[in-house]
Design a protein around this nucleic acid. Sequence first.
DNA 1: TATAAAAGGACTAAAACGGTCCTAAAGGTG
DNA 2: CACCTTTAGGACCGTTTTAGTCCTTTTATA
Lengths: 136, 136
Amino acid sequence: MMELTRKGEYAIRGIIYLAQLPPGKVALISEIAEAAEVPQTFLAKILQSFAKIGLVKSFRGAGGGFTLGRSAEQITLREVVEAVEGPILPNRCLLGAGTCERDGTCGVHPVWREVQGKVVEVLDGVSIKELAARKK
Amino acid sequence: MMELTRKGEYAIRGIIYLAQLPPGKVALISEIAEAAEVPQTFLAKILQSFAKIGLVKSFRGAGGGFTLGRSAEQITLREVVEAVEGPILPNRCLLGAGTCERDGTCGVHPVWREVQGKVVEVLDGVSIKELAARKK
DNA sequence: TATAAAAGGACTAAAACGGTCCTAAAGGTG
DNA sequence: CACCTTTAGGACCGTTTTAGTCCTTTTATA
Ligand code: SF4
Ligand code: SF4
């Protein structure tokens, strides 16, 4: 249960690599992919989607590449994971009231909410900066 | 991320129904399925797998059906979920050392272990008995 | 023996996963 | 301007998982 997909794993590795670069330096997708040991074209898709939401910045043409969209301590692991996997939802009924017609009386519902809360708390508590530093 | 499948949801509903029955009473799969609002043949598969691991007991023939394998307070939500979805694993590398060759130096690894711990803690903390009582 | 269950196995459609590949667009460089 | 570099976007694809159904067999009861 609850497995991170490859996409999520790759995303994290890629963004940590970016965080380990000297600030302002741009990295080629080929460079990131190699360092993070991730399929290049797949990672490209991931970083492109990150660029759209501002998590990273991208530059085209010669001398282009990717950089973090903001400083590494302002990016949490949760953001990265959710950007790629969608919101942390142990069960569908957490999406909104009425998703499950039983949610009013259901005793399990609050348990899922608690699980969600705990996971979010952990993932929100760790920044990419921390992760980048730990690895060095 | 981390979504319970229908199978898991159905399993929980089904087993809670069993827990709400007077002790010793057996329930037909058709009865459970209707009460829990779950596709009958699908639930049958689930309960059959539960019977194999002793989570429920099954009786064939006229007057047969399903009962809990032990008392409801001795069955945790975690057991039910894991029986149907497999172990709680936010990431593959938690399966065992060496699953990811990076796990030695990886700073993210401990985060997943923490997530796993929290989720297991919550799910272990709630028994089917509690859930059955809450719903009544 | 007839009947009433669960058990087991085969099968399926649809979605998600885990990518690849090709073309287009944008930005530098000579 | 032409050319090269690099990301962006879209189409495509094989495999696995999900979410079931259906049919036959076995076991137990009446
Ligand atoms: S039955 Fe309860 S736990 Fe299951 S989906 Fe509905 S509200 Fe959520
Ligand atoms: S890189 Fe780290 S988090 Fe990712 S699978 Fe390997 S050990 Fe786990």
